[in-house]
Design a binder for these strands. Structure first.
Lengths: 233, 233
DNA sequence: TGTTAACTGTTAACGGTGTTCACTCTAGGC
DNA sequence: GCCTAGAGTGAACACCGTTAACAGTTAACA
């Protein structure tokens, strides 16, 4: 006989799996409490033994998706691969995942992040998963920097305010200088912005297929980090 | 006695005003059919005399917000202002509007755009309003280009596929070459991406206040278009 | 001017949602 | 072997978007 909390863990996983299934088939609005319960042959109130609310279920699903994405991107970089190539794989992997799972991407990255300086939000599993995901990028960029520092704007070019804010983040970037963090942040914001626009269809009223544009942009933003990504055909 | 369709137009405006009020106070989920009706002292079915569905009401609201934003940005550029300064005002005006009306911005730009090559979507007022808004930017960039062409990547650097796609859009950019359209598109995607990330809180886990970063980015992307935006302090 | 048709609003109802409460039953721990 | 904690149920509540049938007002037309 399986132990009781083992059974509980199994049911919990089944719930999230069902929610995931509904998400991919019908988008975010399709993953309702009653729908999930129906999928498992349960009555809606039964789910409250596992999640305090519908929102909590969604949050848990988001955290799971973060982790899935993180491990997927990690596995892409397995083996003995040059650091620049790794970043290229990370960027392309993120885009591929986003395009292959638009509903999941929309749920994870289209949902507003919790309040700025709201207390006790650091303990939430979703936040931790997001941090793990963000760390993936920070870590890689810091490695690239320490292997071969790339030219970066001087503090005077950025302005004192920005330099102060960037150096405050220096510890998270393994002690990189403000200018280098600035370029890394550029890489991230441009990558994130591009993928969001492509997935949410904000781009295909000017570019029906954004693959070539994405590739060109990847080359451009990689150059800023001293990488020679594969040049466009 | 006011004519009947005048009265009808007034009620229609009141409905959208109430919806707008609910939007700013409680975000997108707060603007429900019943809530709007309550706001006007009507019963929910009465709204069906004015909108075929709740979705239609939301779409009309989006179209209105597009137009409001368009005229607001247009008025910013009124008078005898240099073209580069105009683009700077446009970018900053968009950001200011987004930060001042986060709920509206989320509704307008966070909502997925209608299907790619879906037929008859061109007649929808929301689409037309979006086109007017997009035209604002295209028009200005084309003016800048024709006043003083900026250096742009050659076709060989972009790759044949991308060049083909960009030249297909040439007519919308007053006959600009592919490389120049590419740089203009960069301006737009980076601006849009930055504002989205800031408004949706995707940025303040690394930058508590993104104003300085935005300013620096604006300078950077303006340079690519041959403009000398105000340099950071 | 009287009739008619269209328009605007109502009430009642249907099926859907998340959520709570009181209850039953079953499995584990002492 | 009792007894308690946990899993699950059914009924109910308040909300949601939507539809149908109905009533009052207002404009148009013979």
């Amino acid at each position: 006989m399986v132990s009781r909390d083992r059974r509980r863990a199994a049911t919990l996983a089944e719930i999230k799996a069902a929610a995931r299934r509904l998400l991919v088939s019908g988008g975010t609005p399709a993953v309702g409490l009653r729908a999930v319960a129906r999928e498992l042959g349960l009555t809606p109130p039964a789910l409250y033994r596992y999640f305090p609310s519908h929102d909590a279920l969604i949050s848990a699903l988001i955290a799971d998706l973060y982790d899935e994405l993180t491990t997927a991107l990690l596995s892409l970089q397995a083996g003995d691969i040059e650091l620049g190539e790794r970043l290229y794989l990370l960027a392309n992997g993120l885009r591929d995942w986003a395009l292959a799972h638009p509903a999941e991407f929309g749920l994870v990255f289209g949902t507003a992040v919790p309040d700025p300086e709201d207390g006790e939000h650091e303990a939430t599993p979703g936040h931790q998963a997001a941090m793990r995901f963000g760390g993936l990028f920070k870590e890689l960029v810091a490695q690239i920097w320490h292997q071969q520092p790339f030219p970066h704007p001087a503090d005077e070019e950025l302005g004192t305010v920005l330099v102060e804010q960037l150096t405050a983040e220096s510890e998270h970037f393994h002690g990189m200088p403000a200018g280098a963090i600035y370029l890394s942040l550029n890489y991230w914001t441009r990558l994130y912005g591009l993928i969001c626009m492509e997935v949410f269809g904000q781009l295909h009223w000017v570019l029906p297929d954004a693959a070539a544009y994405f590739e060109a942009q990847l080359f451009e933003i990689g150059q800023a980090l001293g990488l020679d990504c594969p040049a466009p055909e």
